[in-house]
Design a protein around this nucleic acid. Structure first.
Lengths: 186, 186
DNA sequence: AAGCGCATGTAAAAGGTTACATGATTAC
DNA sequence: GTAATCATGTAACCTTTTACATGCGCTT
């Protein structure tokens, strides 16, 4: 999960800040978005939740269900919220994978509208750089039509779409703010 | 690198099959494509090359340079080529990250035009499935406009572009095959 | 001989998946 | 009682990054 990515610890903490969840819930939620975000295994999720408990960043409550075994629902604490904000204030690496971008996008719900827009704009600049790099690489290839050209072509198509989407979204959000209703646990 | 991905061992082997390279060369080449493929560290590359040597899948020759320290250039062996083909014949997981797709696309140069087209078509189907899943998820969200919707929207935009590119490319390649000049090492 | 860029290498630590094991609850 | 689904948990293993260390060849 790491490698210029979002550490699972803070990714989960950010999810908990939006909604109390069990390990199973987290797995299901991320599995549904698995093309857009990392989807860790249970063997990674459960120990991470235990660590959050241990460090006082989250609390746990056993919730009985009908027809189903009980769940352990985790809730972020005030200390956890503070840790999350401190983490979020750290500078972000200048390059970022698609998944990392979307993960931070999801976490952005914990913060302000400005921060969200900043995040999108930074991504925009990054994608523009990437497009330039791909164009340069394409030029260097010259006439040769091969697999590398195919890969570059593919990358350029994606970059163009991403840029358009980001511009569009930044404009839209600037005019009409998103309501960021974060469900606060307690 | 693993986790439904392309193992570094075979990725490097595939690169060597297209062109003899040193560890440093590999690093530089992949760094340039780092948005499209995994870009492993030296601490991963060098030991992998040693293992390929050890297993007889590659040979190594020290090549002196002017003005620069000598390089260790690796070359695939016949045994290595056979291992690569066996690996490539194994069934591929039904879902694949963008990077994994592009990595396999680059490796496809080692194989036939049909295999290349098959790879692209399989990706096409996969992306179509993904789009359906994202559409379903969007419907389930209903009216609520939030970050999750933003993420889904983003995913849908990318999926649409990918589908168009894949269709386009498959058609183009079906009519006008790509010349796959693989530089055979020695 | 000191410094710099190229090039290779390694050990320790971090991060993750796989493959189990356990147990609750319902349905047959 | 046994199979199936939901849910949690753990240990062994694998991969990968990080943070060094080494050395060549040129320049000053």
């Amino acid at each position: 999960m790491s490698a210029g990515s979002v550490s699972l610890r803070y990714f989960i903490l950010g999810l908990l800040n939006q909604h109390p969840m069990s390990g199973y819930d987290i797995k299901r939620f991320l599995k549904g978005l698995s093309w857009l975000v990392d989807s860790p295994s249970f063997g990674n999720i459960y120990p991470t939740l235990h660590a959050l408990l241990e460090d006082g960043l989250a609390t746990m409550k056993v919730v009985s269900q009908q027809n189903k075994p009980p769940r352990k629902v985790y809730n972020i604490t005030n200390v956890g919220r503070q840790a999350l904000h401190e983490w979020a204030n750290q500078p972000v690496a200048s390059t970022m994978s698609l998944k990392t971008f979307v993960m931070r996008l999801v976490l952005a719900g914990n913060f302000s509208q400005e921060r969200l827009i900043t995040h999108l704009k930074r991504r925009r600049d990054q994608v523009a750089d990437r497009r330039s790099a791909l164009e340069r690489a394409t030029d260097e290839l010259g006439e040769r039509a091969g697999l590398q050209r195919l890969a570059l072509d593919y990358g350029l198509a994606l970059a163009a779409t991403e840029l358009a989407w980001l511009d569009n979204t930044v404009n839209r959000l600037s005019q009409q703010p998103l309501s960021l209703e974060v469900v606060r646990g307690d």
